[in-house]
Computed example of a mutant assay.
Amino acid sequence: MMNRQRIVITGASGQLGSELKDLLSGEPLWDCVFLGRQQLPLEQTEAIEGLLSGYAPDILIHAGAYTAVDKAEEEADLADKVNHLACAEIARYCRHHQVKLIAISTDYVFDGLSEEPLNEEAPTRPINRYGITKLEGEKAIQKICPDAIIIRTSWVYSSYGRNFVKTMLRLMDEREEISVVNDQVGSPTYAADLATAIRDILKAERWVPGVYHYSNEGQLSWYDFAVAIKELAGKSCVVRPISSEEFPTMAKRPKYSLLDKAKIKQTFGLEVPYWKDSLQSMLAKINSQNSK
């Protein structure tokens, strides 16, 4: 009988980590270990190599990150440690021990000034601290561990954790009217779909290193997304469109960050679900959880 490969997943309690746990735990091919902040504190960069050695992974999925976009403006050093320096340590470990590495990055590495879907060769020019630290993490991984796969994704949501969909559902129950920006365009990513894509990449016949883009199919604004949440969830709250200028945040957001997914689809033969179908699946999952 073939030995099962060991997969170590960071960010165990995050949205993607939680979806990976649901998806991979029953897989006969792999022995999965999920590490949260307690088991692997990413800000303690000097401890990372020793901690990972204790788990001896064959494959490492690095889904852990500092994701508080606005807070990163004030906690730039902490965000840099977690999103950049920890990536460098993880990449070093993977190179030294011949571990396959899949790392998750973000559409926030772009400035949002494009007018067409962004492919992997599009110039990066982040406009907030979070995006800067994620880009530095990407660069460190590519330099230290060129065999790694980096997946940039956008607008991640799930039935787990905190995210836009769950915030909208809560606000729509609490208020008669809400305002949502209509001039930031991209596509959401259901974390369960991204988890499935990662599983399919691991099962693919060949390992092709490099940067890839993944989000659900389609193009929309946050306002469009909120309206769809309202309609599919049967809420009566009024959703009003506003501009980014009317809703100032500590960190700037890219106005346009729609990801071109041609490369990941062609390379690994992936089928990417349409955003509205995925939203419907997630809402159905939440309903079934609530009715238990």
Rank of each mutant, 00 (worst) to 15 (best):
Y223M: 07
S221F: 03
L20D: 04
Y214Q: 09
L270T: 09
G161W: 03
R125N: 15
T249Q: 12
S18K: 00
L85R: 13
L60Q: 02
E75T: 12
E120G: 10
S244G: 07
Y130E: 07
S257Q: 14
L35K: 04
W30H: 03
E115M: 11
G50K: 05
G54F: 09
H62Q: 01
T189V: 00
K139A: 00
H213Q: 09
P254K: 05
A47R: 14
A204E: 09
Q184A: 07
S215T: 08
S257M: 14
I61F: 00
R199S: 03
Y160A: 11
L220S: 02
E138I: 11
E89H: 14
W207T: 05
A103K: 01
G17L: 02
Q38P: 09
Y66L: 10
N216A: 13
V8M: 00
P41I: 12
D147F: 07
M168D: 09
V208W: 07
F110D: 03
K143S: 14
T189L: 04
A76H: 07
A140C: 11
L258A: 01
A191Q: 00
A68H: 11
E177S: 15
E73R: 04
T133K: 02
P117C: 02
E246Q: 09
D22P: 04
S154K: 03
I61N: 00
T133L: 05
D31W: 05
Q266V: 10
H97C: 11
T267H: 01
Q219V: 14
E27H: 09
I178E: 08
Y214V: 10
A47N: 13
L23S: 03
G26A: 02
M2H: 14
S288R: 14
I149Y: 04
K255R: 12
Y256P: 06
N290L: 15
L202V: 01
I178W: 05
A91D: 03
V208K: 08
S13Q: 15
A122H: 05
F164R: 08
Y93Q: 02
L171S: 14
K292D: 12
G137C: 04
I178P: 07
L51M: 07
K285V: 12
Y256Q: 05
G36W: 06
K230N: 15
L29K: 13
Y66C: 06
E49L: 13
G11E: 01
S278N: 09
Q39G: 12
T124M: 06
S159I: 14
N163V: 05
G234A: 08
E27C: 12
V165T: 14
L270N: 06
R170K: 15
G186C: 01
E27Y: 05
A251P: 13
L118V: 10
L35S: 05
A197E: 12
A72Q: 01
E75W: 11
W30P: 01
K100V: 07
V82H: 00
D173S: 06
L202E: 01
Y157V: 00
A68Q: 13
A63E: 03
A65R: 05
K263E: 09
A140G: 08
F34E: 13
S291R: 13
Q280H: 13
A233S: 13
T153I: 00
K252E: 06
Y256A: 02
E271H: 09
G14F: 00
Y66W: 10
A228R: 04
G137D: 03
T10W: 10
A12G: 10
